[in-house]
Amino acid sequence: MGVNNQVFITEALQSDPPLRVKHETLMSFRKVAFEFGNVGCCLVSLGDTRVSATVTATIGEPLQNQQNEGRILISVNDTARHATMAEKSLLENLLQAHLTRVITRLNAVNREALVIADNKVWILRVDAKILNNDGNLTDACTLAAVAALRHFRLPITDVTHHADGSQRVKVMPASSHDPRPLDMPGEPLSCSFMVMPTTPPTIVADPTAEEEETAACSPVTVLIDGAGRCCGLIKPGGPPIPPDTISALVKAADELTRPLCKRLSDEVAVDHQRRKAEMIRDARMRDT
């Protein structure tokens, strides 16, 4: 990015009233939209940033030291990167580490509920694909992964134990047994900010790619769970910020994620109702 652009962005942010190119105010998100595809597929757009996430499930064996837990594998793929490159880019690496931490450490999915039988567990795969990067990929990826997990439905299984001690797992068809949603107690969402070292510090929520590139800014991500509690604070370097700014950030993150969290559950519910109505309609069409 050129020096002119940087100067323009910083001066516009510090003008009175503060101005931003793609946002209404300093503390607002761009337009968030969820598009659901198949069960467990969600495309999240945050302004021009677009991330799609897909959740799939297979039955497999648990890890040696975690016998009573299912497994969740997470991968992040930047589609702008050349597909034949063997190694993951730093960006993909960082986002993958972030998603893994958010989903596994914050109890986003109850992994104990993924156990089917002895030595048989569900293995969930969450694949996030970055379709377009216009900044704030951390929030977009978290939102997409959480939305896809909430949209996902796990098939019902039936375990029969034989007299000789062996067992047989049968996956029931969705037509006769309604698949169940995942048990998601944590409901974490992330909220990212850029802090400019002015006095007092200028805080900008949901930064765009150009705002992220502005050299003097420091990125901070706050994680908020479904109950509105702060459950994470990530600041990977950058210019230092005073500790009292951090409390302000946590408060702002809570206010920003609350409507988002509610909208997400509403939209998932609406989509599943629509799906169910379609299924009933299709069944009727077949009958007549």
Partner: peptide, 30 residues
Amino acid sequence: IAVMPSTGEVVAVMLVHTLPRSDLLDELLE
């Protein structure tokens, strides 16, 4: 947690955990 000691400002922090109390974050930083 990494800080600039002369100003007491936070440079880097990497915390991901559901905290039992909301005021715990301030205590941790302190």
